[in-house]
Write a protein that binds this DNA or RNA. Structure first.
Ligand SMILES: [Zn+2]
Ligand SMILES: [Zn+2]
Ligand SMILES: [Zn+2]
Ligand SMILES: [Zn+2]
Lengths: 169, 169
DNA sequence: AGGGAAGTGTAATAGTATTACACCCTTGCG
DNA sequence: CGCAAGGGTGTAATACTATTACACTTCCCT
């Protein structure tokens, strides 16, 4: 499921706001590698969608992406959804369930890992951080209920460090 | 935020599938108590929506609820959304972000608690279980990032015990 | 050359949620 | 009593999110 990502060690841990991705090219490379491994084409459309997300510091809805892309040439939402499906499979884009929006991911993910998406209700940015404790907690809850876990969705709404400071000032 | 719920100790722990709620009346009472505490009316519409959800073993979308209610008398989705807002505030209904659907809740919730919604991809039922470990994990991740947490969304897709057995047979 | 898997472009449709507005009904006053 | 304010209702319209269907292409394998 995870597949191989070409951009290991991008972000040394977590903590940096998701923000304008330092290296769009590296993310493209990640997607390209995934495509190659599956013998699937890494098409124009897929690259365009990923690029838009990677340049943005906040999650975008599929229709916002559609609008951005349509500036140059008219694009239909369904085309964007198709690309998003691919990119999510590739692991370089995540969907934010609470906001029905999508954002590019800088991180290397491992199966069985639980990643927390921290969403700022003020500025909308997302920070992601893996948590072993959360993973264990999920595992424990599932076990106790005889539930066989497949994949988790963990989102935390709140206020990011930057916005807290700003407000204090 | 939590408010007082009248139906303490309904479910001795967790583990029982969400299923046809043993005591619809108790849930109604919970909502009524919340309304009273806020000096808000517990209206017909609110009771009807809660009753539909409480009788159902799976989450329903707002439009499914609308259809159920419309059997007796035509109802608009917006009316259902309004009631759902109230019931969520009251804490007796939750929204499942991954499925954009709603289900009635049997449990007493406490602030700072993290509740895991285990969603069966086979039969669609939801089981909820609080997890201290998850709560700690979220707290830790937030702290490390300077993030001020407000409320978490924790959903775990997988296969429930019942469906696992069924398949084995 | 032929066949199949995968992608594209376009149109239409399904499904989820909100806004706007006119009206009602209670509560709390002057 | 008169009447304003807050909340709920009912209705219509609209906005926003996601999927299905289909005709056509392209690439790869044989
Ligand atoms: Zn990620
Ligand atoms: Zn912020
Ligand atoms: Zn609950
Ligand atoms: Zn099941």
């Amino acid at each position: 499921m995870a597949g191989e990502k070409a951009h290991h060690e991008r972000c040394e841990g977590h903590g940096h706001a998701h923000s304008p991705h330092s290296d769009v090219a590296a993310m493209i490379e990640c997607a390209r590698a995934f495509a190659a491994a599956r013998k699937l084409p890494f098409t124009e459309m897929r690259a365009r969608v990923l690029t838009v997300l990677a340049r943005e510091e906040k999650p975008l809805t599929a229709y916002e992406i559609t609008d951005r892309l349509s500036v140059s040439k008219k694009v239909q939402a369904v085309q964007v959804y198709r690309a998003l499906d691919f990119l999510q499979e590739a692991g370089c884009v995540h969907r934010l369930a609470s906001k029905a929006s999508y954002f590019a991911c800088d991180h290397e993910h491992h199966p069985g890992e639980a990643v927390v998406f921290m969403v700022c209700s003020q500025c909308g940015t997302v920070q992601e951080a893996p948590s072993d404790l959360v993973a264990q907690g999920l595992q424990g809850a599932a076990e106790h209920a005889g539930f066989k876990p497949a994949y988790p969705i963990v989102e935390l709404e709140g206020e990011c460090a930057r916005c807290s400071e700003t407000k204090a000032a």
